[in-house]
Write a protein that binds this DNA or RNA. Structure first.
Length: 584
RNA sequence: GCGCCCGUAGCUCAGUGGAUAGAGCGUCGGCCUCCGGAGCCGAAGGUCAUAGGUUCGAAUCCUAUCGGGCGCGCCA
């Protein structure tokens, strides 16, 4: 249960009753009414702004509305008291039994706790990674990869029908460069001395294996032959090899896409021509000459008539070219066809995860989606900022093997996939991220992965101790749910349960905002509160989780501690991280 | 020049239009013979870049300015 949407429903129901009794205007709009945790916990458990937001439309004083509402809210299940405060807030204080019920809910649900129906089974397509098939993934790709993957899991937990998609850019000039680079390595594999890799080709050593494989399979069939004879087959082989490499890299961080869509296949199926014909008929395509870009002028700039999409009609700054001077489609043109393809496959909700360097591309893509779907589809583009890889504060320089960047694989091999997945979400997607290889392995509060994992391990540890202290006692979740939870009455205990019971609200909020990093911050806070209470037990033995001569109280506290462990596990589950049983 | 993102404590950053803006690190002071050590409690530290505006209420929304990052036809 999302406690806050539950009470919001109760509040709105009460408002409707008041309206039908004639004490409020009949046609009030309640959308602005919220129910939230008050910033200051001493104000109670749930606060609503109802009286303040309705005052003006109802032409009444906030306090008068609050008084009417308070009377009814006092009778709502779980409400202990209602007070009107400040400019017109209504603060609800809940009975502790309400929180005990939530704890039972956690224990019954297990890691499914926090699952929500707000998605109502609606399909969402999350497209992420989509790195060019020209080499291994670097850490920047890794951030987008983890972000997209966890966002997908989060949306799935929130009740959406999620498809994880990878768009394979296997049609542009970059894959021809790849083919030439692979052919060079092929010649090398056949004994030729190629020297330094020429400017304009991919220098990465990972292509040596591709060249060697080509040599094994095809012998000297493409040696000393014109490019036209080998370009296509070499390209196919190289793309396949690169995609295999990328999928291994993704597998190493625990990512598997449901769908791989090939750009080349879309082009060859004539889908680009189709969508552009349609746009042309509707008058969104014309031939024109663009103004030269301001600022840094390309050296070979010359005014030239181009096939342009009227993206300015949909909020873009300039109209965008669809055809290159060699007659090929621009990337944008194929991307329009691709997004229409997603829409036709049933996705009115699309999320694209891109690197921040593609920021200038967002407006035109949104414009295009609006144009080709008649405004029926919603595209959200999430831009992931750069990752700076450090070791104890020192910038880590690029690796030779890959060419010029730190590969995702190197980082995963060094610190583990769970750490990579968590750290990538400890910042908002649009803020730059420092990834310190030394710090993320520290066992300290400064390291969020450790701190959160330690909370789960500590819960497991307490349970292990309990099993020794109370041999024969059933300590499973289904047994703990029957513990006498009314014994959990200390404010610290209710606070901890309240925090754990906020999880469903965090899930829904993060899912709606497409912001998985919120989960990381929440888990850190929850862990912090558990550790604090544990430590408090040192000075105040009566607060310890296990008290040998008070079995009922110990069982109740085990239920609480276990509840926290479940929520941590549920959160780590969304992150795709295995919760730790112990920290050794 | 234009567009997008960002500007919050000494540093790194949270903060879904709500009440007295939070956390970690660092600094200072205390605690640490514990269910599992890798920590806990407290203090100091803020013109939320600046100036206007909208609102009962703005770090949050709008406008302008300043500062930083990214991008700016035929790359993807």
């Amino acid at each position: 249960m999302n406690v806050f949407s539950h009470f919001r429903d109760e509040i709105v129901a009460s408002l409707r009753e008041i309206a039908s009794a004639g004490d409020l205007p009949a046609d009030l709009d309640f959308r602005a009414v919220t129910a939230e945790p008050p910033r200051d916990p001493s104000h109670g458990d749930v606060a609503t702004n109802a009286a303040m937001v309705l005052a003006r439309p109802a032409s009444m004083k906030p306090r008068d509305i609050a008084a009417l509402l308070a009377v009814r809210l006092e009778r709502v299940d779980g409400v202990a008291s209602v007070e009107i405060a400040g400019p017109g807030f209504i603060n609800l204080r809940l009975v502790s039994g309400f929180w005990h019920d939530r704890l039972r809910e956690v224990l019954r649900a297990g890691v499914a706790y926090g699952d929500s129906e707000i998605g109502a089974g609606r399909p969402v397509n999350v497209e992420y990674v989509s790195a060019n098939p020209t080499g291994p993934l670097h850490v920047g790709h890794g951030r987008g990869a983890v972000f997209g993957d966890v966002l997908a899991s989060l949306l799935s937990k929130a009740g959406f029908a999620v498809t994880r998609e990878y768009y394979v850019n296997d049609a542009g000039a970059q894959v021809d460069v790849l083919a030439r680079s692979a052919h060079l390595r092929y010649r090398e594999a056949l004994g030729e001395s190629v020297g330094d890799v020429p400017e304009g080709l991919y220098p990465g050593e990972y292509l040596k294996e591709v060249g060697a494989a080509l040599a094994r399979k095809h012998g000297d069939a493409w040696l000393d032959k014109p490019e036209s004879e080998w370009l296509e087959p070499v390209r196919e082989a190289a793309i396949a090899a690169m995609m295999a490499l990328i999928r291994e890299d993704l597998e190493a961080v625990g990512i598997r896409h449901d769908v791989f869509t090939s750009e080349r296949a879309l082009v060859e199926a004539g889908r680009v021509g189709e969508v552009l014909d349609d746009l042309e008929k509707r008058g969104f395509i014309y031939t024109g000459v663009l103004e030269p870009p301001k600022g840094k002028l390309p050296e070979d700039w010359e005014p030239r008539p181009q096939t342009l999409f009227r993206s300015t009609a949909f909020g873009d700054d300039v109209d965008r070219p669809l055809r290159k001077s060699d007659g090929e489609w621009t990337y944008f043109a194929t991307d329009i066809a691709y997004h229409l393809d997603k829409y036709r496959r049933g996705f009115a909700n699309m999320i694209d995860v891109w690197g921040a360097d593609h920021g200038g591309y967002v407006k035109r893509m949104k414009a295009a989606v609006e144009a080709v779907t008649g405004g029926e589809a919603d595209l959200d583009v999430k831009l992931c900022q750069l990752v700076k890889v450090l070791r104890s504060g020192e910038l880590v320089r690029m690796s030779k093997r890959a060419g010029d960047f730190v590969t995702l694989r190197e980082v995963v091999d060094e610190v583990g996939k769970g750490v990579v997945r968590f750290i990538m979400l400890t910042r908002k997607n649009d803020a730059p991220l420092d990834f310190d290889l030394a710090k993320v392995l520290e066992q300290s509060r400064d390291n969020p992965v450790f701190y959160v994992q330690y909370a789960h391990a500590r819960v497991c540890s307490v349970l292990r101790n309990a099993a020794e202290m109370f041999p024969g006692e059933d300590l499973s979740d289904s047994a703990l749910v029957n513990a006498d939870l009314s014994l959990l009455a200390a404010p610290e205990e209710i606070d901890l349960i309240r925090m754990a019971a906020t999880w469903p609200r965090i899930v829904e909020g993060a899912a709606e905002a497409h912001e998985p990093h919120r989960l990381a911050f929440y888990l850190y806070d929850l862990a912090s509160q558990l550790h604090a209470l544990w430590t408090k037990g040192r000075d105040q033995p009566e607060l310890r989780f296990l008290i040998e001569d008070d079995r009922p109280l110990s069982l109740a506290r085990l239920a609480m501690v276990r509840g926290v462990g479940i929520v941590v596990a549920s959160g780590l589950g969304v992150f795709g991280i295995e919760p730790a049983e112990e920290m050794r």
